[in-house]
Design a protein around this nucleic acid. Structure first.
Ligand code: MN
Ligand code: MN
Ligand code: MN
Ligand code: MN
Lengths: 218, 218
DNA sequence: TATTTTTTTTAGACTAACCTAAAATATCCA
DNA sequence: TGGATATTTTAGGTTAGTCTAAAAAAAATA
C-alpha cells in the first residue's frame, strides 16, 4: 500500500504530465505539492524504488504504467466523491474539492465501485471533468471554450477550466451552473468579451478571461 | 487539528472507559491499539500536553471534556458512515467496520451534518449502536439480551454485543439481521440455550453464547 | 513485611516526510 | 565557448510515531 503522501505525489505528477511535454521537473512538483525541491528528490527516489516512476538524476520523472494506474484511480475516487457531495448531499460546486482531497485516499475498491453504482455511473464530475471508469478509461468529450464559439452558437455549460473557488463562485453568482443553456448573442472583437443569453432570458456580459474558462457542449 | 493516530487513541480510551471502572491503563490501551506500552506512554503524554487526557505517571488516564467530545464525534462519524454503507450502498453489516475506520477521520463537520440529514437522522447504526447527535447526545435504548428474555416474550433483533465478523456472518446465515421479529419458544435450563421462532416461521436453536450477544427490542 | 512479579516509564534508536544550506550539474547567453 | 544563473541533488537535521531493552514503581504474594 502507498501512503497518502505517495498518492498525492503520483496524482501531482499525473496532472503535470498532462500539461507539459516531456518529463516532469522536480521544481514543478515542488510547487504543486507545496514543498521544497529537496523533499521532492527524496520522494521521487522512493517512488522509483517502488517502480511507480521512471527517474534518472537531473532528468525529471515520468509515471510508469503502475504509477499511472494508481494516479487514475485516485482521480476516479476524487471525482466520484465530488459528484456524490454535489448530487446527493447538496454541496455547491465550489465547496467540494477539499473534502474530496481527503475522501480520495479511502482505500476500498468495493466502496468506490458501489458508490459508482449508487450514483448511476456518472461520466463527469461537478466541474465537467471526466470520471475514469473502473478500468481507467476516460470518456472523451466534445466541449468547446465559450470564447471560441461563434455568434449564434448555443449549447450548455459543461465544464470549467479554472477550478478556483473565486471563479466557481463568480459563475454561481451569475447563475451559470453546469447544464445552463446559453446562446452566444455577440462577440466583441476589440476585447474578446462576449454577450450571452440564457434560456430563461437573462443577458450576461462576460470578459475574455471568463469566456476562456467556460466549456460548452453544443 | 489532531492526527489520525491521536484520534484513534482518544476513541480507544473512550471505549475502554465505558468498559472499566477508574482510569484506563497503559497496557489496556496498548492492547487495543495494537502497539507497545512504551509507545502508549509517549502518546499519552502528548495528549496530556494538548489537554485531551488527564494523566499522572503510573495512574492511568481519563479523557478531559475536550478529549471526550472529540472521541464522541469520531464515533458519530464512524456510525453514520456505517449506516450509509449498509443502507445506501448495500453493504452487509459485517463488511462496513474497516471502511468506517477510515471514513471516521475525514475532517469536515459540514460533510457529516449533511450526511446525517441525507440519511434521515438515524438513531442507530447497522449493529444497533446509538449514533450520537451533533451535540454529542446518545439516545437511550431499551434493548434486552435475548438470553435474559422469558419464554413467550417476543421482539425484534435490535443490536449485537459481539461485533466480530464471524458472529455477524453467523447471524446473517441464520437470517437474523437487524429488525428480524422473533418469539422465544423455549429456554433450556441446563445449558441456557434457547429456541426461537421467527415471524416467517423458522425455528432456530441458539446457544447461550449466541443468545448472550443478541439484543432484542421488545 | 520482604520478596517476587507485573506494570509502567525512560533511554536510545528507527523510518517517513519534511526542512536548510551547500555542492553538483545543467542551461543560458554574451 | 566560457562564465553567470538556475535547477537539482546531497548532506545533515527535525518531528511524529513507532520499537526494544533496561530502569523504576506498583501490585501481588509468601
Ligand atoms: Mn477537485
Ligand atoms: Mn472536480
Ligand atoms: Mn464499526
Ligand atoms: Mn457499528
Amino acid at each position: 500500500m502507498n501512503s497518502f503522501t505517495e498518492e498525492n505525489y503520483l496524482k501531482a505528477i499525473y496532472k503535470l504530465t498532462e500539461q507539459s511535454v516531456g518529463n516532469v521537473t522536480t521544481n514543478a512538483i515542488a510547487e504543486v505539492m507545496n514543498t521544497k525541491a529537496a523533499s521532492v528528490t527524496d520522494m521521487v527516489k522512493k517512488l522509483a524504488d517502488k517502480k511507480l516512476v521512471n527517474y534518472a538524476k537531473y532528468q525529471g520523472v515520468s509515471l510508469t504504467k503502475k504509477g499511472e494506474d494508481i494516479a487514475i484511480q485516485i482521480i476516479r475516487k476524487h471525482r466520484l466523491w465530488e459528484f456524490f457531495l454535489v448530487n446527493k448531499l447538496n454541496f455547491k460546486w465550489d465547496e467540494v474539492h477539499d473534502i474530496a482531497e481527503e475522501l480520495e485516499h479511502i482505500n476500498s475498491s468495493a466502496l468506490i465501485d458501489r458508490l459508482d453504482e449508487f450514483l448511476g455511473y456518472p461520466k463527469y464530475d461537478p466541474h465537467g471533468d471526466p470520471i475514469p471508469s473502473k478500468n481507467g478509461i476516460f470518456s472523451a468529450n466534445n466541449f468547446y471554450k465559450l470564447l471560441k464559439l461563434n455568434e449564434g452558437d448555443s449549447g450548455k455549460v459543461a465544464g470549467v477550466c479554472d477550478h478556483s473557488n473565486t471563479f466557481l463562485q463568480y459563475l454561481e453568482k451569475q447563475k451559470l451552473g453546469l447544464g445552463t443553456s446559453v446562446y452566444l448573442t455577440e462577440k466583441n472583437e476589440y476585447d474578446q468579451s462576449v454577450v450571452i443569453t440564457t434560456t430563461d432570458g437573462r443577458v450576461l456580459f462576460l470578459s475574455k478571461e471568463v469566456a476562456n474558462n467556460i466549456l460548452i457542449a453544443k
